[in-house]
Amino acid sequence: MTTTRTAFITGITGQDGSYLAELLLAKGYRVHGLIRRASTFNTARIEHLYQDRHEDPQLFLHYGDLVDSSRLVTLLSKIAPDEVYHLGAQSHVRVSFDEPEFTGDTTGLGTIRLLEAIRMIGLDTRFYQASSSEMFGATPPPQDEATPFHPRSPYGAAKVYGYWAARNYREAYGMYAVNGILFNHESPRRGETFVTRKIARAAARISAGVQDHLYLGNLDAVRDWGYAPEYVEGMWRMLQADRPNDYVLATGTAYTVRDFVDLTFAHAGLDPDRYLRFDERYLRPSEVDALIGDASKARDALGWTPRTFTPELARVMYDAELLALDSPIPLSAA
Rank of each mutant, 00 (worst) to 15 (best):
M1S: 13
T3K: 11
I9N: 14
G11I: 01
L25C: 10
K27F: 09
K27C: 11
H32W: 13
G33K: 10
R36L: 10
R37N: 08
F41T: 04
R45Y: 09
H54K: 07
E55V: 13
D56W: 07
P57H: 07
D68L: 07
D68I: 03
S69D: 12
P81E: 08
P81N: 09
V84C: 12
H86Y: 09
H86A: 08
S91L: 05
S91D: 11
V93C: 05
V93P: 08
R94C: 00
R94Y: 01
V95F: 14
T103I: 00
G108W: 03
L109S: 00
T111P: 01
I112V: 15
I112N: 14
L114E: 08
I121D: 12
G122Y: 10
S131W: 11
F136P: 06
T139P: 07
P141M: 05
E145D: 14
F149M: 08
H150V: 09
P151I: 04
R152A: 14
R152T: 15
P154V: 09
P154Y: 13
A157M: 00
A165M: 12
R167N: 14
E171S: 15
E171D: 15
Y173V: 02
I181D: 06
R190M: 11
G191Q: 15
T193K: 02
F194V: 00
V195E: 00
V195Y: 04
T196S: 07
A202R: 00
G226N: 09
Y231C: 13
E233W: 02
G234I: 04
Q240H: 06
Q240W: 03
R243T: 15
T251S: 11
T253R: 10
Y255W: 13
R258D: 13
F260M: 06
F278C: 09
F278E: 10
F278T: 14
D279I: 04
E280I: 07
R281H: 14
P285I: 05
V288R: 07
A290I: 01
D294T: 03
R299P: 00
L302V: 01
T310C: 06
E312I: 00
Y318C: 00
L323A: 14
D326C: 05
D326G: 15
P328T: 08
L331T: 05
